[in-house]
Amino acid sequence: MIRQAIAIFTKDLMSELRTRYAINALLMFVVVTLAVIMFSLVGESLSPGALTGMLWVVMFFAAMSGLSRSFVAEEERGTTMTLQLLASPMSVYLGKLLFNLLLVVALNIFIVLLFLLVMDQFTVAQPDLFWTVMLLGSVGIAAATAIIAAIIAKANTKGTLFPVLSFPVLLPLLMAGIAATKVAVEEPVWDNALPELQMLASYIVVVVTVSFLLFDFVWKD
């Protein structure tokens, strides 16, 4: 299963580097959004809490603009059946999850670095906690969007369905992520973010487990 998953992950990566469907959409979205935020906030003073919320808004909508590609591209190209003939459903899910994970982690690192660069009011009190929250948040976003992308891939209105279904599923992650990021930005004490970190870790475990159980039904027929 692991060998098949890595082969599918490599295929997706090679395909993405050649076609650049998701990368271009994601980068354009991030650059345009941050530019709009930067221009609209000239001379304004925002609290660290408001800036934290803004960072997560950018991360959420950036994920919505490109992360469904992994499954939608297979469906649009007509290669879903090819993949069904080649590999077990579990391997396909794991391969796609790994690809989504790479994409989200790289994307969120890019967003955070750009955000820190253009928002000079945004400073981080605890960088290690901050990056831990970003990593857990990225894994949670990747896990949730992978299974949602698989569910919506066969629908006619994919573009609308993806954010509509993703928002309620991602809400617990967003709430815990924003609260933990606020602690990392404002307070010098790790312990204050422990409940949120536990929530993020539990969210990942639940979503990945449920996805493994559900994927077989989503993938076939």
Binding site: K11, S15, R18, T19, R77, G78, T79, M81, T82, Q84, L85, L86, A87, S88
Partner: peptide
């Protein structure tokens, strides 16, 4: 799936 080979006009390969 490991035991079958399948070819059909509607099968699409990775064209890139």
């Amino acid at each position: 799936y490991p035991h079958i080979g399948y070819a059909a006009p509607y099968l699409v390969l990775y064209e890139e």
